[in-house]
Every structure is written in structure tokens, then in C-alpha cells.
Amino acid sequence: MPHSAHAPHPHETAGGSADSSSHPPTGSDSHRTGTWPGSEVPFSALANAYQLIERHQFTEVDRELVRKMGAILNPHIDDFLTAFYVWLSGQPEYDLFFADPGRLARVRSLQAAYWRSFFTAEVDDEYVRYRREVGIVHARIGLSLPAYFASMDKGLSLWMDEVYDGNLTPAQFLACQRSVTKLIHIDTAIVVEAYSQVINEKIADQARSILEMSTPVTALWEDILMLPVVGIVDSRRAQDIMRSVLTRIAETRARVFIMDISGVSVMDTAVANHLVKVTRATRLMGCECLLSGLSPAIAQTIVELGIDVGKVHTRATLRDALEDAFGRIGIEIRKTGEIVRGGAL
């Protein structure tokens, strides 16, 4: 399935891949503006046409052989596509991606264009850009690489076993086939590279959004603030927490702040130090900090790492911390014996 339903223009999506692919990758800093540090390789750093030809040793001879094969096969492209789509309709992805007949026709015509360009064997920037777009689209719509590999393999065997008329000498055929395979590998390499690039960007985006999740400091009661800390605590996140907590304490003049860390995924010296720093800061604002949600495993880790949590009040559960907090502000919770049952109609 070298093509899919809609091919977004690469300039909208990939940050300018076509214009930069003719040069070997140089400093890529200009493409990194606004990106998360270390998360992405810009598309300009992906292999360009020249590098691909070198790496795969796709020679002038190969090019001639692919063209020779193309001259034989290309006239039968309709037969090929028909057979290919018969095969494709048996694939599990088919219903998901090609249920719409209009889309199917569109993809089919794109695929005809793809194989025409393939048999020109003209591996230039335009050629690379085109295939990169295929990879990008596949990644966007969630068409898996195994499905793509299977379809390329099916394509190759259809051309060679079904469409090929057997008019070359075995030696000639073997040479042609070798060159065609080489070019298919080049295509696959481009697609996979672009595909992984998109996936990496997705992962980087997710990591960023986790880190940027807000720090919702909530007023739980008069004088009691609460913050559930979820996910990764790094220095940046700790700073966010610190800022929003201190701001809220200043606003509300709360006397107790409960930081619930049951959602913290990793506890190490650095994380503990960040948290202890927050508790120290809140105390300077006249607000006692209770750390709740320590699991037995985290308690063991803290002691085994020799982390000194100093005078921080820690509690196993949020419930205990809340009880403690009520005690500190002089509120007593008791059962009244009255229970509200059911819901009003």
C-alpha cells in the first residue's frame, strides 16, 4: 500500500522536506526552533537521494535494468493493480482504510503514478520526497509497517510472477530482478525513515504534554490545599509545582497543604529532593505540608537511598493526610447517623 487516502502536502506537515533534501545534512539547528530538546531529528537530516544511492550502491547499470523491466511491465499496470487490489481486499486493514469506494479509486490512481515513477528509476529529490510523503501518511493514519512491507512484497511478486511475460533470458531476468529489488529496498528505507520520524514526533509530543499537564492546586477545605502530583517530576515540573502552590497559598492563606504523590511514577533522590524543597518552601509561607500517597515500595526506596526527608510529615493515604489536616486546623469529623439514600426523581 504505497499510497493512502489523503496525502498532506509535506510543507504543511513535515517542516519542509523537499527543499532541503538535495544537500547532505548540515547543521540542523535552524529547523529545531520550538521543538522539545533532543526529541526530533528534522526531516532535513534524513537521508537524501544522493546518500541513498550511495548507501544502496544503486548504479547506472541498475537504473538501466529497472527501466528495461519497466518497459516490459508498465504497459500491464492495470492488470497489476487489479490483482493487487484483489489481494489487498483480503487483508485485515482493507475494511478499515479502503471501505470508501471513492477513496479506493483515488488510492489506486496514486499507486499507478507511484509505479510509473518507480520504473523511471530516477532517484532524485522529488522521488525521495514522494516516498517520504507515503511514510508520513502511513504513520498519520496508523497503517502499520508490517502491512506496508507485506504490500511491497506482494507488489514485487505480482510484477515478477504474474505480470512478467518471460521474454528475457534467465540471466537478463535475474539481473533486472536484482535491480528492481534494490530499488524497492531504497523505497522501503525512505518510507520507514519518514514513518519512524513521525512516530518519534508523536512520542515527543506526548512526553511534552505529560510534562505540561497543569498542576491543579485545589482548595479542599477552608485552610486546606491539595495537589495530586501525577507522572514525572523533573526540575521543570517541580518549579511549576512550586510556583503554583506558593501562589495559591499566598491567595488563600491556607494553613495546610497536602501533596499527594500516589501518582508519581518514579521515585529517586532527585525527585525526593524536589518534593522536600516544595515542603520547605510552603513552611516558609506559614503553611504545613503533608506528603500523602507514599506506597510501601516508595518508603523502602527513600530509606534505602538514604534520602533525608527531614521534618516532612508523610502519610500513606490521602485519607490519613486529610484527617491529620483537619486536626491541625481544629476541625473534627463525626458521623451524624443520618444517611441520605437514593436520588431524587
Binding site: 518508603a299 530509606v303 508523610t314 493526610a321
Partner: peptide, 12 residues
Amino acid sequence: QQTAAMVRLLGA
């Protein structure tokens, strides 16, 4: 002593 420290972290 260390086990005690762990217990105290759980608030007991």
C-alpha cells in the same frame, strides 16, 4: 532502625 524509618514515612 531503617525499617522504622520506612514505617514512619507511611505516617505511623
